[in-house]
């Protein structure tokens, strides 16, 4: 199973699309590793610098409809090669969410009010998130604040995270 704990990168905007996550000009690469420097290069987000703000982060917390647009699995891959395997948002685009779990990564939905609360308490601090997978728990810590939030993923998504992906599972079963 991949790592789902570490420092949090807050992206405070809804509808961040997969062209912003990894622009199409990099879809000519035939390896995942080549995508690493280009993650979030075209994001339309005031004050964000992809050259400085991604380093050392392991978790994204963001707003609604994350990963909309193109079906490119290069979007999860670009996160994966930057050691970011978990995105938390109120909602995701269908294909993006499927692609994350198909890669053994996690796209986890929390209610919009919870995300609001997390943004207001934590987004101005250097924040760590610990995932307790078996208990379905995220523990957020920053300075002297600590809060935990329950999460739920579907049985299929859980199976994919535990199996590390969908290809071998499907090949053995169908």
């Amino acid at each position: 199973m991949k790592n789902f704990s570490g420092k949090v990168l807050f992206l405070n905007r809804s509808d961040i699309n997969t062209d912003e996550i990894i622009p199409a000009r990099y879809l000519t690469e035939n390896t995942k590793e080549a995508l690493k420097p280009y993650l979030l290069e075209d994001i339309n987000l005031e004050g964000f610098d992809n050259k400085k703000d991604i380093e050392g982060k392991a978790v994204i917390i963001t707003r609604e409809n994350f990963g909309c647009g193109s079906s490119r699995e290069h979007a999860p891959w670009a996160f994966e090669v930057n050691d970011i395997n978990l995105v938390i948002a109120p909602s995701f685009a269908r294909i993006y969410k499927r692609n994350m779990f198909n890669c053994g990564m996690m796209a986890v939905e929390l209610p919009a009010e919870t995300i609001d609360q997390i943004f207001s308490v934590f987004s101005n601090h250097d924040t760590d998130l610990e995932t307790v997978f078996n208990d379905g728990l995220f523990i957020l810590t920053a300075a002297n604040i600590m809060e935990s939030f329950e999460f739920r993923i579907s049985g299929f998504d859980r199976a994919l995270v535990e199996a590390g992906g969908w290809v071998d599972y499907a090949d053995s079963k169908y």
């Binding site: 079906s71 699995e73 299929f156 969908w166 499907a170």
Partner: peptide, 20 residues
């Protein structure tokens, strides 16, 4: 339905897709 590369791969291999 549009899908990512992993779903495409399974489609090519097995002719199936998992959907809601």
């Amino acid at each position: 339905a549009g899908v990512g590369t992993t779903d495409l791969e399974v489609g090519i291999l097995k002719g199936v897709c998992a959907l809601g």
